[in-house]
Each structure stands twice: as C-alpha cells, then as structure tokens.
Amino acid sequence: MAANTATPRERYRTQVRAEIKQHAWEQIATTGASALSLNAIAKQMGMSGPALYRYYASRDELITELIRDAYRSLADTIQAAAASGADLRALAYTLRAWALEDPQRYLLIYGTPVPGYHAPDDITLISGETMAVLLDASAALPGERPATPFDAHLEEHRHWAAGNPAPATVLHRALSFWTRVHGVLSLELAGHFTGMGFDPAQLFAAELDDLLNSPPNWTTS
C-alpha cells in the first residue's frame, strides 16, 4: 500500500472540502442546486463566509466539483459493468440502479440546468466516457436497422461521438437508448409518475424491450 504523503494541512483541507460537499448535497436535496448558498453552508459548519471561500472560491466552483464527482462516479460504474460483460440491457439497469441510489446526484447532471452555470470542458470529456461505452454496446447488438434521414444527418454531426468509427446507424441506436432511458428515469425521479398507479420499473423494462427487440429501432436477422 502506498504511503500517504499528504501533509496534515492537506489532509485537513481535503476533509473540510468533503464536508462542504456533503452539506451542499443536503442543501440541494432541500432547495435545489440553483439556490445553493456557500454562506448558508458556512453557517452550518460554524465558519465565516470568507473562511469557507478559502476552500471553494465561488458557488460555481462548488457546483463544478459536485457535477464532476457525479459524472466520474457514473462513468466508473458503467465502465466497470461493461468490463464485467454487461450488454446494453444490463448497462441500462446499471444506470437505473446508480440513479436510484442517489436521485439528487442524478438530477444534478440530467435534470434542469442550473441558471447561469457553464460546465468546464473536462466535465464534457468525463460524460463522454459513459457515451463511449454505450456506443460500443450498441455496436455489439446483432442485426441491422435500415438507414433513416436522421442517420444521414448524424454522418455530418458526429463530433459528440469523440472519434468513434461506428456507422451512423449505431450512433442512432446509442442516442435512442440514451434519450429514452433517461426520459423514463428523469420523469420517475422527478416524481411525475406519482399517483399514476403503475410501477415505473415495469415501464422501464417495457421501454428496454421496445428498444432492443422491436422494429423499426433495429432488428435481429
């Protein structure tokens, strides 16, 4: 085991930053990310506002850290599942389990954007790691799907695939998976199915069946 070379001051700083993030998550669960207040967190921790700003210089810096942690956690989870042999269906359930484990974490990155906040480029790269796994899993599906006009559009607009050489039909598969899975999850976690009387887990399974088994999405032959 590698020795911890951090100084006591560095360890204390890491500990305080982690505590600040925990308070931030609690505040987000209560009031939402757009109302996140460093001064309120400082008060909870018995610190002055200026003292807390030595750890996070701004609200956006703290939000960036939370978003980066969330995307990193998701990417690591999806990559680990894929490395264990998960196919696209299993990856969908991995994503759902991750989302249900901490809905506020999921909604921070896939819910309503925080007004006035702009994520740095490195977060886009981390989120792209998850899409790369989904693209590979989509490419591994058997059978072919007839090309559509949108596929032709994707041939000219594929920068989001980060150089993945998959044909446009595979890009379309991955996008269909991504949008429909997140659509169901976002509605469920935001409470929009409450009172409708059906089991969201059953809807999620039905959507996967439709995506993976039924034309015109793609067919097995």
Rank of each mutant, 00 (worst) to 15 (best):
M1Y: 11
A2I: 14
A3R: 15
A3F: 14
N4A: 12
R11M: 11
R11S: 08
R13M: 00
Q15D: 10
K21V: 06
K21Q: 15
Q22M: 07
A24N: 02
A29P: 01
T30S: 14
T31L: 13
G32M: 06
I41L: 01
A42G: 00
Q44G: 03
M45D: 01
S48C: 00
S48W: 00
L52M: 00
Y53N: 01
R54H: 02
Y56F: 15
T64K: 11
L66S: 13
D69L: 06
A70H: 07
A70Q: 03
R72L: 08
D76M: 07
A80V: 07
A82L: 04
A86K: 07
A90T: 13
L95M: 09
A97K: 14
D102K: 12
P103H: 09
R105C: 08
Y106R: 08
I109D: 02
P115D: 08
G116A: 08
A119Y: 03
P120N: 07
I123T: 02
I126M: 07
I126G: 02
S127C: 04
G128F: 02
E129H: 06
T130P: 01
A132T: 08
A137F: 03
A139I: 04
P142E: 06
R145W: 05
T148P: 12
D151W: 11
A152Q: 14
E155R: 15
A161M: 07
G163W: 11
A166V: 11
P167Y: 07
A168N: 05
T169H: 11
V170D: 00
F177I: 09
R180P: 01
L187D: 09
T194P: 02
M196A: 15
M196L: 15
G197V: 04
Q202E: 15
Q202M: 12
A206C: 06
L208R: 14
S214C: 12
P216L: 09
P216W: 10
T220V: 12
T220L: 07
